[in-house]
Design a protein around this nucleic acid. Structure first.
Lengths: 169, 169
DNA sequence: TTATTTTTTAGCATATAATGCCAATCTAAC
DNA sequence: GTTAGATTGGCATTATATGCTAAAAAATAA
């Protein structure tokens, strides 16, 4: 085990792996040759490491980012949802209904007395939002409350998860 | 303009473009040949369209997704921050300070009386969180309040932005 | 420290994919 | 229908990914 390696849950990363993760989180479609150059390895071991990170499940996928506003979705909202009862059935049903709504970008189960879920939704305009909220979301069984915040500006988004080396231990 | 096209702010998309956007948002590293097959075009026009979507700014980038938990970040929190004054200087300073913290995955300026910003942060454990909150974030000039929610489970994440055709108009 | 084992690498050959070009096809307007 | 413009498919070329092997590096044991 190299001295610079980082033992984590089932994975051991050295500085090459950390660099790969960092670069791919910023430039997900970089080709293997340039990635290899940037981390200071030749292409073949570099590719082997990328494949290993994918196979290990540490890299879970790749996504293109699109400009939602330019696609016509000018409104992004955070929706905090409260449920009446905290039973697995209630939750499972809610989650299935929400998963069927393409406007829902994200759904997190969270702690807190004010809400059980936070949804992030994108819609065309306020009319669409009202329709989504009143006709879709609040009609899901068990939903007792909904509180909306609107995103005025996206200051930071899609930032890389820190490598362990960023942490102060 | 083809009959199936979708006029948006400065962009006109037909079904091929919409399919490309949808597929690349799910499989950001798919190769051009397979992408071309899936949308029913030959590779060369397919690639030309992808480049056009990138050049137009509709596709803003690509990201690898990593499993934060397996990287040692077992705690994800949503942090709602209130500011004393809503001046550009206050905001700019806060945003710069927050951008320097690698644990901050996302920072959104939002509406609402309870908070001005929502941060999404990932940390190793509750000790780290406490340290981040008390020693870093609440010490930023102008921060008057912070309220934390913790993410219990990620139900949905990184979903594709709906193509316009998903909308009911 | 030195010898031995194990792991990882670089380089090359081969397979696969991306890119640029052009004739043919399709679309939209007249 | 006819024409003008845009888009496509196929091909040649260039670039990249992948698999293999010998060499190098790292880890382990003596």
């Amino acid at each position: 085990m190299p001295k610079e390696s980082t033992p984590v849950v089932g994975v051991t990363l050295d500085r090459y792996d950390r660099q790969i993760l960092d670069i791919l989180q910023r430039h997900g479609r970089i080709n293997n040759q340039e990635l290899a150059e940037r981390i200071g390895l030749s292409p073949s071991p570099c590719l082997r490491r990328v494949r290993a990170l994918e196979d290990s499940g540490l890299i879970t996928g790749y996504r293109a980012l699109v400009d939602a506003k330019r696609l016509g979705h000018s409104l992004t909202a955070l929706l905090h949802i409260s449920m009446d009862r905290h039973t697995p059935e209630r939750f499972a049903n809610f989650e299935a209904k929400v998963a069927a709504l393409p406007q829902v970008q994200e759904c997190l189960l969270i702690t807190g007395q004010e809400a059980d879920y936070q949804l992030k939704v994108v819609v065309h305009d306020m009319d669409d939002y009202q329709n989504l909220l009143l006709n879709q979301i609040t009609r899901i069984e068990g939903v007792t409350g909904a509180h909306s915040s609107f995103v005025l500006r996206r200051v930071l988004e899609h930032r890389p998860v820190p490598s362990y080396s960023d942490a102060p231990y």
